[in-house]
Design a protein around this nucleic acid. Structure first.
Lengths: 149, 149
DNA sequence: CGTTCATTGTGAGTATAGGTAACAATGAGC
DNA sequence: GCTCATTGTTACCTATACTCACAATGAACG
């Protein structure tokens, strides 16, 4: 009651839980044999949110990683034919990333994997609790950009 | 309202948040220059929970990693003088892990780092919200061992 | 025009965290 | 004794993300 978070217990729970999320996600991805890693899956999903092909830098910002990390992810996805690097005619420094047809297909199949993984992870929670958790996590994530710099 | 978690959104928030936790934790550890990685910090903290020096296998189970991972962590901590491998007189296969004096000192200093890291992470939440989050995370973590096997 | 400076993506290398597989030493059961 | 399980470790592989340096390009400005 007095000390709900003595010395980072909550952060520890968070990390512990995430190792679990990671494992489950990986297992579901492997089960469906989609040939993408969790991080690649995230990039694919992010990609789908754009109306027009984003630049590498855009993806880096969205994914909250350094640009170099995006290069690695796109390398993998491109070599497996899920995305395509497209030169930007207006600015020859930028390359835009586009989903291929196969990428779209994978993305659809991925939805199933993601859904069942999420279901497994969130099984112990009721609908209501999931909503609450969602709000709390959102607050924490939002809080980041606010307190930054 | 109708679909609080369309296709693993919650899991994604969780992962995203954890990357943030990781970064913050790492930064705080580096700031204090304690010479331990986040995972090593976790092992040290786990170690403190035992009344008598645990075996490697015990630590692996508690940390939810394969024994091999513990070997690596202990290697690092031993080479920096924070823990000591002790042979078990009763069973010559097992090695027990003990905190050194320096390890105890580091652990104390670590508390500060952990606390400030946790504070930074949880800043956007009220006391009450933290409690709720704690319960939810606990439920999720507990749910694991239940549905396993 | 040329010089300087910022932007963009990437090569090279590193660190962290984790995993598998094989194995040697040891203990336990018959 | 022989067989089998346990314990930690050696050797190696993967995924993720980082820093640093750099080449190519674009922008600003004298």
């Amino acid at each position: 009651m007095t000390t709900p978070d003595p010395d980072g217990l909550l952060a520890e729970q968070l990390l512990r839980l995430t190792r679990r999320v990671h494992r489950i996600q990986k297992r579901h991805l492997e089960r469906d044999d989609l040939g993408v890693t969790p991080a690649q899956s995230r990039l694919l999903r992010t990609l789908a949110h754009y109306a027009s092909p984003p630049r590498m830098a855009d993806l880096a910002e969205r994914l909250e990683v350094v640009p170099r990390a995006v290069t690695t992810l796109v390398d993998g996805l491109e070599s497996s034919g899920k995305v395509r690097r497209m030169p930007d005619p207006a600015n020859r420094r930028v390359t835009r990333i586009e989903l291929t047809d196969e990428g779209h297909t994978t993305l659809r199949e991925l939805r199933g994997a993601r859904r069942s993984a999420a279901e497994e992870i969130l099984a112990p929670l009721t609908e209501k609790e999931r909503q609450v958790l969602g709000v709390l996590l959102d607050t924490l994530i939002e809080g980041d950009s606010g307190t930054r710099c």
